[in-house]
């Protein structure tokens, strides 16, 4: 059931959705947003791709296996907690760098934690979605 209209629309919408998801991830510390919604919106981008061009194309667009994304995300979130321990404060205490990075803004361990949540949510939702669409 290939549709040229849907496939072309998906190709236009997918990058837009991914940019929006990264935008939500980056501003999550000071405004509504964050890793969880960002990850869900990114999963929507790949869901649109899988509906338009099939699951195999969506998997190729993602490059890595979604289960690996889950593991890397959880490891990143866990690793960000030790930034506080290294500074002699309780686990998961936020550590912020003094320098301002252009576009991204202030960076610190909460950002690493959010990126981990983003990757974990993306991995979980895409693992479920791809498994369900490949079933039939």
């Amino acid at each position: 059931m290939f549709s040229l209209i849907l496939s072309t629309t998906a190709r236009a919408i997918m990058p837009l959705t991914l940019v929006f998801s990264v935008y939500l991830l980056m501003r999550g510390h000071n405004a509504p947003g964050g890793g969880f919604v960002g990850g869900l919106i990114a999963a929507v981008a790949f869901a649109i791709a899988s509906l338009a061009d099939g699951v195999a194309t969506a998997r190729r667009a993602l490059v890595v296996d979604p289960r690996r994304l889950m593991a890397v995300g959880l490891a990143l979130a866990l690793a960000s907690g030790f930034g506080g321990v290294a500074a002699g404060q309780p686990f998961l205490t936020g550590q912020w760098a003094e320098v301002m990075v252009p576009v991204v803004g202030k960076i610190g361990t909460p950002l690493v934690f959010d990126v981990g949540v983003y990757l974990a949510v993306l991995g979980v939702s895409l693992t479920m979605l791809f498994a369900l669409s490949e079933e039939d």
Partner: peptide, 11 residues
């Protein structure tokens, strides 16, 4: 966000 997700729902 609703616009992007609503599109997926309809598709």
């Amino acid at each position: 966000a609703i616009a992007l997700i609503g599109f997926l729902g309809t598709v």
